[in-house]
Amino acid sequence: MSEHIVTSYDAELSRLNRMILEMGGRAESQLAAAVNAFSRRDATLAATIVRQDDYIDALEAEIDDFAVRLLALRQPFAIDLRMVIAAIRIASDIERIADYAANVAKRTIALTKSPPIGPEKVVPRISGMVEAMIRDVLDAFVERDVEKAHAVWRRDSEVDDVYTSLFRELLTYMMEDPRNIGPCTHLLFIAKNIERIGDHTTNIAETIHYLVRGERMVEERPKSDTSSFEVVAPASQGSAPEQGGES
C-alpha cells in the first residue's frame, strides 16, 4: 500500500505497529524467563517476572490510548481502520499472554518449596512450542502474512495434545500418592496457563487474517484439549490413553 498524503498519519500507523511488536516481544520473553525460572527452581527470578508484568499492562494502556486517538483524529477507513482495530485486539491478547506468563512465575515460586516430580520436563517442551508460535505470529503480523498466521493457528492443536497427555499423566501421579496432589496441581496450572497462551496466539492469528483480508476467519477452531471431559478411571491406568475425543 502506498503512502498517505498526510505523512504524519503514516508515522503514527508505523508507531502503532512498533508498539505491538515491542509488547509482543516482551510477553514472549516473560514466558521464556518464567519457564527458565521454573526449570532452575529460581524463586528470585520468578518474583522479578511477576513484577515486570505491570510494564506490559502499561504498554497495553498506551496502545489503547494511541489507537483511540488515531480513531478520533484520523477517522481511519478500510485497511487503516482494520489496523487500528487489530492493534487493540492484539494488544489485549498479548496482555493476557503476559498475565499467564506471570501466573507461571507465581506457581513456580510455590513449586520451589516442594521436591521436583517426574512430569516437570514437559513444561519446557510445551512452552517451547508456544514461544515459537508467539514469535511466528509476530512475524506474520510484521509481514502481513496470512498463510504464516494460519500455520501458527493450526499448530495450537499440537499444544493441546501435549497438554492433554500431561493432564492424564498427572492424574495417575495424584492417584498414586496423595502427597503429590499439591505439586501436581501447581504443575497442572502451569501447563494450563501455557496452553491458554497458545489459544491467545491463535486469536492473534485470526486478527491478522482479519487485518489482511478484511473478513473474519471462518475455519473451525482447532480444539483437541479434551481434559475437561476427562473422567478419573483407575482402570485406564497404564494403558495408552485414546486421543481425539470431540474433534
Partner: peptide
C-alpha cells in the same frame, strides 16, 4: 466499502493515499 473495499483505487481514495 469503508471497511474492506475490493479495489485499490477505492482504498487509496478513502484512506487518503491518493496522489
Amino acid at each position: 466499502i469503508f471497511t474492506n473495499p475490493a479495489d485499490d483505487r477505492t482504498q487509496g481514495y478513502i484512506t487518503g493515499r491518493f496522489g
